[in-house]
């Protein structure tokens, strides 16, 4: 029948996790409150700002628009796991060097989205990068530096590929 609480088992950042969650709890509240993975942020909880972006079963999603209960059996990756995996360490370093963030609240979501961009593309025009990133709100930077950082990283990866 229908449940108020659900027992879920999932992989989070490579680790097996079991938990009992309220049906209404969205994924990011679960990650933040139950697993203390506070790198995923809540900026609106209605699916616009992208601060809560996490990877579920290989693709980036709005963590506030997925229920924790729905992730039973899923493979979830947060900024903490992405960082440990070194998948986008080059992008992260470039973000720091290029000062592609200020307050940093949007940054984990930006990186989760940009990670998918880099995984899917090796060459994009600047406006295409802007379009791909257009679901993540940054109030501080005006985006220019973020787009620079992604462009620089993509170019560096291409260079590396060539050599």
């Amino acid at each position: 029948m229908a449940y108020d609480f659900l027992d879920i088992k999932l992989i989070v950042n490579g680790e097996q996790v079991s938990a009992r969650v309220p049906a209404r709890m969205h994924l990011v509240d679960f990650l933040r409150m139950e697993l203390e993975l506070t790198g995923s942020h809540l900026g609106c909880e209605h699916g616009i700002c992208g601060a809560c972006s996490v990877r579920v079963d290989g693709v980036v999603v709005r963590g506030c628009l997925v229920l924790a209960a729905q992730c039973d059996g899923s493979d979830v990756l947060t900024i903490e796991g992405l960082s440990e995996s070194k998948e986008v360490v080059d992008l992260q370093n470039t973000f720091v060097e290029r000062n592609a963030m200020q307050c940093g609240f949007c940054t984990p979501g930006m990186l989760m989205t940009a990670a998918e961009l880099l995984a899917k593309n090796d060459k994009m025009a600047r406006n295409e990068i802007r379009e791909f990133m257009s679901g993540n709100f940054c109030r501080c930077t005006g985006y220019h530096a973020i787009i620079d950082a992604i462009e620089i990283t993509m170019e560096a990866r291409r260079e590396e590929e060539r050599s």
Binding site: A2, A23, R24, E45, G47, C64, L65, L67, A69, Q70
Partner: peptide
């Protein structure tokens, strides 16, 4: 019915809609 949830969940998170049961067909 809960399908992708990308329109439904915002309305739930804003308490604009308060169904008793979600049937997840994913």
């Amino acid at each position: 019915i809960l399908a992708g949830g990308q329109s439904l969940l915002p309305t739930l998170n804003m308490r604009l809609s308060q169904p008793k049961v979600l049937i997840d067909i994913n």
